[in-house]
Design a protein around this nucleic acid. Structure first.
Lengths: 65, 65
DNA sequence: CACATATGTTATATAATTCTAACATAAAGT
DNA sequence: ACTTTATGTTAGAATTATATAACATATGTG
């Protein structure tokens, strides 16, 4: 399982889900599902989001055993 | 596209592809394909590999525009 | 040479992510 | 009350990662 705090950092940047989705070229629903932890993103998408939110990947996503 | 140097760090740790595959619970072929850049791993797998190789994700994988 | 080990390749199947579209809800403003 | 905006949800299709198995090659070692 992967725990994320995309939502927190997205809101700190003042982005809506749609805006973030546009920046990283995915659908808004994808952002919703990610924020809800409903699936693990591809590394590429995770990196794009981390870049968009100016946040290190390790801070955005945490691996739970 | 994602550029990786899993192979370099795997060899520095003295792991075979099979050993690394066992540690992160994937097939050896998956490691082969990752090392060859044939697909982008899931974030979870990327994190497991980074942990197994004691290497930060950002050092193991680089996003090319 | 024969054998073992590590690596690479290919084809097909399964599982998960992501897309797409549609609808629902809640909050905020007019 | 109406409209807009942001967020959440659901279902099915499309795409991609990963599994599985089989075979190929290279290298080293007896």
């Amino acid at each position: 399982m992967i725990k994320t705090n995309i939502k927190k950092y997205r809101q700190m940047k003042g982005f809506t889900q749609q805006e973030l989705a546009n920046i990283v070229n995915v659908r808004r629903e994808t952002i919703v599902f990610l924020e809800k932890g409903k699936y693990n993103p591809s590394l590429k998408l995770a990196m794009l989001i981390a870049e968009a939110l100016n946040t290190p990947i390790e801070e955005l996503f945490k691996l739970e055993k």
